[in-house]
Amino acid sequence: MLASARDDLVAVYRDVRAELLHLPNYAVSAFAERLDRHGSDPGWTAVLAYAEDGEPVGYAYSNVIETDDRWWQRITPFPAAEYIERPAVALKELGVRVPWRKTGTSVSLHDTLLAQHAREPYVSLMVNPAAGEGKVQRLYESWGYRSIGTSQPSPESPVLTAMIRSTRRAGKPTGRG
C-alpha cells in the first residue's frame, strides 16, 4: 500500500512542514526514511484526503504497537500498564495543507484512520508542544487526548508531548482541524 501512496504522502508533508524543512528532523529526506520504515511496521494504515481536482490535501498514518515497542520505551515517565497491556495504535503522522485547515479535514482523516483500528483500545501520538504556538496540542486535547509524559524519539527531534486517548469515543471531537 505504501508504494501507491508514497508520492502523495511526501508531497503533502513537504507543504505541511515547509517552514521546518531546514531542520534535520523535519527534512523531506528524514520524513521519507521514517515513512519507509513505518510503512513496513506491523499494522501500518494510511488515509489520504483529496480535493475535487485530485490534488492530495492531507494524510494520516499509524501503526499497531505492542507492549515492548520502542514507542512506549521512549516515554518518560513510563506509561501506565493499562495503556500498554494490549496492542495500541500509534498515530505517527497527521498533516493537512494550509488551504484545507480549519475545514474539518484533519478530524475526518483522524476519525477515518481510527475506524480501521476497532481491536485496539488506545491511540497514542506525540506532538511538538511548540507546534502552532501550542495550537496543535490544544486541538488534540479537544479531541480527547491527554498528556502522559514526554519523549525524544531521536537526538535531532525536539522533546515531544506523548498523548493518549481511547480509540472509541462517545460523541464527536469538538475541535475543527
Rank of each mutant, 00 (worst) to 15 (best):
L2R: 02
A3G: 11
S4D: 06
A5T: 08
D8I: 00
A11S: 12
A11N: 10
A11H: 09
Y13I: 02
Y13K: 03
Y13H: 00
V16Q: 03
V16T: 06
L21E: 00
H22C: 14
H22L: 13
N25I: 12
A27Y: 05
S29M: 09
A30M: 08
A30I: 07
F31D: 06
A32M: 09
A32T: 06
E33I: 13
L35S: 03
H38F: 08
G39S: 04
W44E: 00
L48P: 01
L48Q: 05
L48M: 06
A49W: 01
Y50M: 07
Y50F: 09
E52V: 04
E52Q: 08
E55G: 09
P56K: 04
V57D: 00
G58D: 00
G58W: 03
G58I: 01
Y59T: 01
S62A: 15
N63S: 11
I65W: 02
I65N: 01
E66C: 15
T67W: 12
D69A: 15
R74A: 15
R74G: 15
T76D: 06
F78H: 14
A80W: 11
I84S: 14
E85F: 14
R86F: 15
R86A: 15
V89F: 10
A90F: 13
A90D: 12
A90Q: 08
L91Y: 03
K92S: 13
E93V: 04
G95R: 03
V98T: 10
P99V: 04
W100G: 03
K102V: 05
T103E: 02
T103S: 07
G104C: 01
S106T: 03
S108G: 11
S108F: 11
L109Q: 02
L109F: 04
D111S: 15
L113E: 03
L113D: 04
L113P: 03
H117T: 04
H117F: 06
H117D: 02
H117W: 05
R119L: 10
R119Q: 13
E120K: 13
Y122Q: 12
V123F: 12
M126C: 10
P129C: 00
E133V: 05
G134W: 00
G134H: 01
V136I: 06
R138I: 05
R138V: 03
E141T: 09
W143G: 10
Y145C: 09
Y145H: 07
R146F: 14
S147Q: 06
I148Y: 06
S151E: 09
S151M: 09
Q152C: 11
P153R: 09
P153T: 09
S154K: 11
S154F: 10
S154M: 07
S157A: 14
S157C: 12
P158Y: 04
V159P: 00
L160N: 08
L160I: 04
A162M: 02
S166L: 14
S166C: 13
T167M: 13
R168Q: 15
R168G: 14
A170C: 13
A170T: 14
K172H: 10
R176M: 12
G177S: 06
